[in-house]
Simulated scan of single mutants.
Amino acid sequence: MNDIAFEFVQQLGTELSTGNLKLPAFPDVAVRVKQVLESDDVSADKVAKVVGSDPVLTARLLKVANSNFANRSGAQIKDLRTAVARLGYDLAYSTAVSIAVEQIMDSKSVDTIRDQLKALWQHSVNVSAIAYVIAKNHSNVNPDEAMLAGLLHDIGKYYIYTRAKDHPELFDNPESIEELQKNWHTGIGHAILEAWHFSDDIANTASDHDDLQRVHLGKPDVTDVIITANLCAYWEKLGDDFDWDKVTASQRLNLDHAAIQAILEASGEEIQSIMRALGC
């Protein structure tokens, strides 16, 4: 590790240990959607009112509601209340979160690392779509929760990239930045999601999604789904020789190589539809 990388790691370590991460503000519209969903008298009308205050979220929510995966009847929806009622509150919130992360990513301050962030966002949306399919068809995990977790599981990488942009020398050595991501993004991601007041289950997917031998007692949980979906997103890169029998999460889901291949082939159109709906 060179001196610049070492200095950056020391900085990350100090921020993480002291809880003094320089967090980006979670965009206001997502916060307001979360607040109304947590209220005792939540209704589709109230959610639609909050969504309607943001034209970007309004357009995205209608796009999701009319997408192939959410709209089996083919009847087009043009009003927000019906869209919220069709999608449900959790999926409406996942849509708000997808907009929020994009807004963080699209800041002018990240122009120098936009390509890296775009690739990372593409991966996150892919994992989110695969997680939705796996949760819906092969577990008792709420598929909307799995979708949300998929969108956020790599949030620590966004943080590292946005902090590393102030040290452009780090990007001269791809191996160096990759090592930083590998060693630090999970702990930082967990800290960010806690600070943004996501549930422990969602935060744990950020910290544990790279643990292929994760020990978990009981039924498969959302982290098992995200671990498996994250690997599925690298399906071609992993190749036929990858030993799924060593992945405890996929074993708990009772998914081996052949079963996962069948899922990806059978659900390919649905996965692509979800990704398009979420903005990819």
Rank of each mutant, 00 (worst) to 15 (best):
G52W: 01
S73R: 03
V47Y: 06
G52I: 00
K49Q: 14
A75I: 15
L62P: 13
V64T: 08
P55D: 14
D54Y: 04
D54S: 11
L57Y: 06
R60C: 00
A70S: 12
L61N: 01
R60I: 00
F69L: 08
A75N: 11
G52N: 09
R60V: 00
A59I: 01
V47I: 13
L57C: 07
V51P: 02
L61V: 11
A75L: 14
R72F: 12
A75G: 06
F69C: 13
N66W: 00
A59C: 00
V47Q: 08
G52V: 01
S53F: 08
G52R: 07
A59L: 04
V64G: 02
V51A: 02
V56L: 11
L57Q: 10
S67M: 06
V50R: 02
G52M: 02
S67K: 07
N71F: 03
N68I: 13
V47S: 01
F69D: 12
N66Q: 04
V50A: 10
V64C: 08
L57A: 08
A48T: 02
K63C: 12
K46H: 07
T58K: 14
R72V: 15
K46V: 00
A59F: 02
F69Q: 09
G52H: 04
G74W: 11
L61K: 02
V50M: 03
N71K: 04
V47W: 05
V56E: 15
R72D: 13
A70W: 05
N71V: 04
K46Y: 02
P55A: 14
N71T: 04
A75T: 15
P55H: 10
S53C: 10
Q76W: 06
V51G: 01
K46Q: 10
D54N: 13
V56I: 13
L62H: 10
V51N: 06
L61D: 01
P55N: 12
L62K: 10
Q76K: 15
K49A: 15
A65Q: 03
